[in-house]
């Protein structure tokens, strides 16, 4: 890397981009887990999408499903991001 590009291009270093991307991806993949649990999540995701799609159009990736297994209790987290126009329609 040249002296000039060091001064002027204060872009984010590619290795830290790589690290951030990996950490986000792996957190997701690890929570999905191996075998049974990831099948369960895939099935849940599919069926929840079907129900929502009957009423509103929602993107695949706007529905997030997560299972957190704790020692005391486990939590199933379903996060659905509803599109803007729906709020307006229902309000009127």
């Amino acid at each position: 890397m040249s002296f000039l590009s060091n001064i002027f291009a204060r872009r984010q270093q590619s290795s830290s981009v790589a690290k951030d991307r990996l950490q986000i991806l792996l957190a997701h993949e690890r929570s999905a887990g191996e075998g049974g649990e990831s099948d369960l999540i895939r099935q849940l995701h599919k069926e929840i999408m079907e129900v929502i799609a009957r009423h509103v159009a929602v993107d695949q990736d706007k529905v997030q499903i997560k299972v957190d297994r704790g020692s005391g209790c486990s939590m199933l987290e379903i996060d659905v991001e509803v599109p803007q126009e729906l709020n307006g329609k229902r309000g009127a």
């Binding site: 270093q13 290795s15 830290s16 790589a18």
Partner: peptide, 16 residues
């Protein structure tokens, strides 16, 4: 390359 932050460093990989 790791020192120039063009490559994941040992610490990065270990942390992940």
């Amino acid at each position: 390359r790791a020192a120039r932050k063009e490559m994941l460093s040992v610490e990065d990989v270990l942390e992940i």
